[in-house]
Nucleic acid binder design. Structure first.
Length: 493
RNA sequence: GGUUCCGUGGCCGAGUGGCUAGGCACUGGUCUGCAAAACCAGCUACAGCGGUUCGAGUCCGCUCGGAACCUCCA
């Protein structure tokens, strides 16, 4: 039996070629994927979380297909400057100064926060999660290799990548983002404090630390710290090789970050690094990109607990994930309370149908073409990871499940396969989770509710509508909703 | 100003030239003591103008509107 990836070969949108490409891994059956992780200088916001959720979904699908995936996602804990001018301060160091903490305390605090959030969103941990500070040696080695290539120069203890020289020698800095060098330089003329650079487009590989800079390491050029773009080149090469499969990240990193990565990789070993470059799109709030600096953000924590003025209530992390999965990873998605409310209902409908499926009984014949449905589901996923299309097919299945009692029948083996694949699509690939039944973790409450529901059922039997409605209304006022179904009453908080 | 991209029915959101995306809302129905919930059914749009084509939401051009990047952000 062929692995699933042979049955359903993946085509993915490659930002570099600007086309949909058939995924053909460097090594048959294995996929190396590198995703640019967060800079841990503050709480991750929901926009950050979307990118990592998108790649988690991609990781999950590739794994499901039978690929052995090595998924590397870094933590940037040094070198990310506030801006590119000479006096630019390292984000981590700045935060440490402001909060009067060790930089590593900042790093630790926000790394933990990041992990917590991603765990709540049910994102699987990557295979390797390397840090910039843990790879200073590798970065220094890479700088030496780039200097040797002739495309970097030292200036006052700092080292810069020489973009002009690189492009003059046939390099293609700008090809990923479609930028032309003369335009770039015209556009950035306004910046000052760039004395050390030969050209405005040049970017730092190593920065000499100023006296006040806390994070510093010795190097052949100065006591300093690595440039932000370098860590991803160094770590992707170290763990995935010079020629690996997928490089991912947020759309905002396309330029300059990924452009610089490609140039560094070429300068080091003549290869671009990844064969396919993928970009997850932005999550906007009020039609604008989420941004910490402008305050146009919402934290996942606030979304989960409802503690934000734009929200009427908190939302289950799985609902949030479902909301994200209903849009394609490469499209801008606009966040709103209404959109979340709609997603919550859809999510609930999906999970209810899943529960129904578990207790469905089989028939002698199938009157629904399960295979054709499976085919559609896989085709949508293998077509550039189209989660919204998959979800539309899931809703078709939901209709089937709901109609199963009188119109649609499935054989025992079909039913078994159906259940198995629903689990795969809903939980393993989309990464959704069942809603907790009310706060059913609380056994005492569950028992108390059973009692109340029984009493109300008695009242209803006796046609004591008054009592029954008082119970229902009072509970509703307390935030507990009763649902009368054909097989009794359940509750929801 | 440059680069990249988007503009789809009340809202969100897929659509790689020809066949109903889907969800939410809404309307009608089933169920129910009533309501809610649940389920079923209905609802048919592609910013504007022009062009290519037998045929365009889908390709080309222009206009209008919006976004991201070009300085830190996934």
């Amino acid at each position: 039996m062929d692995p699933l990836y042979k049955q359903y070969p993946v085509h993915l949108e490659d930002s570099l070629r600007r086309s949909k490409e058939l995924l053909t891994p460097v090594s048959e059956g294995r996929v190396g994927m590198y995703v640019c992780g967060p800079t841990v200088y503050s709480n991750v916001h929901l926009g950050n979380a979307r990118t990592f959720t998108s790649f988690d979904f991609i990781f999950r699908y590739l794994s499901h297909l039978g690929y052995k995936v090595r998924y590397v996602r870094n933590i940037t804990d040094a070198g990310h400057l506030e801006n590119d001018a000479d006096e630019g301060e390292d984000k981590i160091a700045k935060r440490a100064r402001l909060e009067e903490l060790e930089p590593m305390e900042i790093v630790q605090r926000y790394t933990v926060d990041f992990h917590n959030v991603m765990h709540q969103l049910n994102a699987l941990p990557p295979s390797i999660e390397p840090t910039a500070t843990g790879h200073i040696v590798e970065q220094i080695e890479m700088i030496q290799a780039i200097i040797k290539s002739g495309w970097a120069y030292e200036s006052n203890g700092s080292v810069y990548f020489d973009v002009d020289a690189y492009n003059h020698d046939g390099g293609s800095y700008g090809e990923l983002s479609g930028r032309k060098m003369d335009e770039l330089q015209a556009g950035s003329r306004a910046l000052d404090g760039q004395d050390e650079k030969r050209n405005l487009a040049d970017f730092a590989l190593w920065k000499k630390a100023s006296a006040s800079h806390i994070m510093r390491w010795p190097s052949p050029w100065s006591i300093g710290f690595p440039g932000w773009h370098l860590e991803c080149s160094a770590m992707s090469t170290k763990y995935l090789g010079e020629d690996f499969d997928i490089h991912g990240g947020g759309m905002d990193l396309k330029f300059p970050h990924h452009e610089c990565e490609i140039a560094q990789n070429i300068a080091t070993n003549g290869k671009k690094g990844a064969r396919y470059w993928m970009h997850a799109n932005m999550l906007t709030l009020n039609g604008k990109r989420m941004s910490k600096s402008t305050g146009n953000t919402i934290l996942p924590k606030e979304l989960f607990n409802g503690n934000n003025p734009i929200l009427v209530k908190g939302f289950n992390p799985s609902v949030v994930r479902f909301f994200m999965m209903q849009a394609h990873y490469s499209s801008v998605l606009d966040f709103s309370n209404d959109a979340l409310l709609a997603a919550e209902k859809g999510h609930h409908k999906l999970m209810s149908a899943w529960s129904k499926l578990q207790v469905l009984s089989s028939s002698k014949e199938s009157t629904w073409n399960l295979q054709a449905w499976l085919e559609k589901c896989y085709r949508s996923l293998s077509d550039n990871f189209n989660s919204p299309i998959l979800i539309s097919h899931l809703f078709e299945a939901i209709k089937v499940i709901n109609q199963s009692e009188n119109q649609i029948a499935l054989t025992a083996s079909d039913l078994e396969l159906f259940k198995q694949k629903m689990d795969a699509f809903v939980f393993d690939i989309l990464g959704l989770q069942l809603e907790e039944q009310g706060t059913a973790q609380n056994e005492a409450l569950d028992k108390a509710m059973d009692l109340v529901i029984t009493l109300r059922a008695k009242a209803r039997e006796n046609k004591d509508w008054n009592t029954a409605d008082i119970i229902r209304d009072q509970l509703a006022a307390a935030g507990i909703k009763l649902k009368d179904g054909a097989h009794g009453t359940s509750y929801e908080i």
